[in-house]
Computed example of a mutant assay.
Amino acid sequence: MIDAHHHLWDLNAVHYPWLMAQGVERFFGDPSPIQRDYLINEFRAEASACGITGSVHIQVGAEDPLAEAKWVQSVADATPDWPMAQVVFCDLTAPDLSTQLDEYQRLSTVKGVRQIIGRAPGEDAVTGTNDLLDNPLFLKGLNEAGDRGLSFDLQLIPELMEKTATVIAQAPNTPVALCHAGSPHDRTEAGLANWARSLQHLSDLPHVTCKLSGLGMFEHNWTQESLAPIVEDVIGQFGPDRVMFGSNFPVDKLYSDYQKMFETQRALIPSDHYDQVFNSVARAFYF
């Protein structure tokens, strides 16, 4: 089985400004309990206890994204019995995009790129990341990534789904992985209904796959019952051949242990879909 979305960090090897900021509350809560090294051995122990045998590392806001990518490559090289692909950060609007991608693609583990479009309404209003959708260079870069055989990890909020779908529809040869089920941050009945309607704009695109990951970031005291509508809608809209499991550890470790999170998702997914959601979709997408 594959965990298609997790992070690692060695605070002596790579600097993460967002992670080490003191007294700063983030959209997912207080990061202070994870302001420490989170290394492959700890992650692997937690994941392998649930039967996970490989994973996909997702970039996580390093000050120097290339340094992070090289460090992740070194971790993968040192643990050949744990297959690990990685998704790196790249500004798709950068004037030297081709040069950056050339550098990244010298690393054998690099399979995709991520540039976050939306995290949460409050943070987005401050950062202005949503403006990417209006930049024609973003679409150009998205197509270049696909032409190079790279995928794109898409993180956004439901309010941006319709607009984003019109952009990525113009890059049909770039496989897109929707992170965190599209971040349904409003867990009221009306909020989930709006999320499900918005999600349809992305699920209608055949080159978009959805990750069941990060479901605890907006609901810290989640239960199997509270997550059920999200899992059911994702499976219903995308079908099992376009859904993959991700832990989002160690961020979701703030509110759950790995076993509880994994077993909850497994209980919500029909058993005849296990192989796709926990293995074959991620394996085909990233490996």
Results as ranks from 00 to 15, higher is better:
residue 137 L to Q: 09
residue 123 E to G: 02
residue 149 G to W: 03
residue 56 V to N: 04
residue 171 A to C: 04
residue 9 W to Q: 10
residue 250 P to M: 09
residue 175 P to M: 11
residue 150 L to Q: 07
residue 154 L to C: 15
residue 85 A to Q: 01
residue 58 I to A: 14
residue 15 H to S: 15
residue 30 D to R: 02
residue 71 W to M: 09
residue 244 M to C: 05
residue 74 S to L: 05
residue 65 P to N: 00
residue 194 N to S: 06
residue 101 L to A: 04
residue 12 N to V: 09
residue 268 L to H: 02
residue 279 N to D: 09
residue 90 C to W: 07
residue 112 G to K: 06
residue 148 R to N: 11
residue 98 S to R: 14
residue 139 L to W: 05
residue 83 P to K: 08
residue 191 G to A: 13
residue 47 A to D: 12
residue 247 S to C: 10
residue 286 Y to R: 14
residue 284 A to I: 04
residue 6 H to G: 10
residue 281 V to E: 06
residue 207 H to Q: 13
residue 53 T to V: 13
residue 106 R to N: 08
residue 144 E to N: 04
residue 248 N to W: 15
residue 206 P to T: 02
residue 108 S to W: 04
residue 255 Y to S: 13
residue 132 L to P: 00
residue 153 D to K: 05
residue 112 G to N: 02
residue 120 A to T: 00
residue 265 Q to L: 14
residue 15 H to G: 13
residue 83 P to A: 05
residue 216 G to M: 04
residue 217 M to D: 04
residue 271 S to P: 12
residue 120 A to H: 09
residue 53 T to S: 13
residue 86 Q to R: 01
residue 199 L to Q: 01
residue 32 S to I: 01
residue 56 V to H: 03
residue 52 I to R: 00
residue 69 A to T: 11
residue 264 T to K: 06
residue 54 G to T: 07
residue 280 S to W: 00
residue 35 Q to F: 03
residue 243 V to R: 03
residue 223 T to V: 10
residue 236 G to V: 03
residue 147 D to R: 14
residue 144 E to F: 05
residue 283 R to F: 12
residue 241 D to I: 07
residue 158 P to Y: 11
residue 79 T to D: 09
residue 146 G to L: 10
residue 286 Y to T: 07
residue 266 R to V: 07
residue 116 I to N: 14
residue 64 D to C: 08
residue 97 L to S: 11
residue 241 D to C: 08
residue 54 G to L: 02
residue 46 E to L: 15
residue 275 D to A: 04
residue 183 S to K: 13
residue 146 G to C: 08
residue 47 A to Y: 08
residue 162 E to S: 15
residue 198 S to F: 01
residue 75 V to W: 02
residue 88 V to G: 05
residue 91 D to L: 13
residue 172 P to R: 11
residue 188 T to R: 00
residue 132 L to G: 01
residue 85 A to M: 00
residue 43 F to M: 13
residue 141 G to V: 00
residue 258 Y to L: 15
residue 8 L to F: 11
residue 123 E to F: 02
residue 66 L to W: 04
residue 159 E to K: 07
residue 69 A to I: 04
residue 13 A to E: 14
residue 277 V to A: 00
residue 87 V to N: 06
residue 175 P to T: 08
residue 244 M to P: 01
residue 22 Q to P: 07
residue 68 E to L: 03
residue 146 G to P: 02
residue 274 Y to W: 15
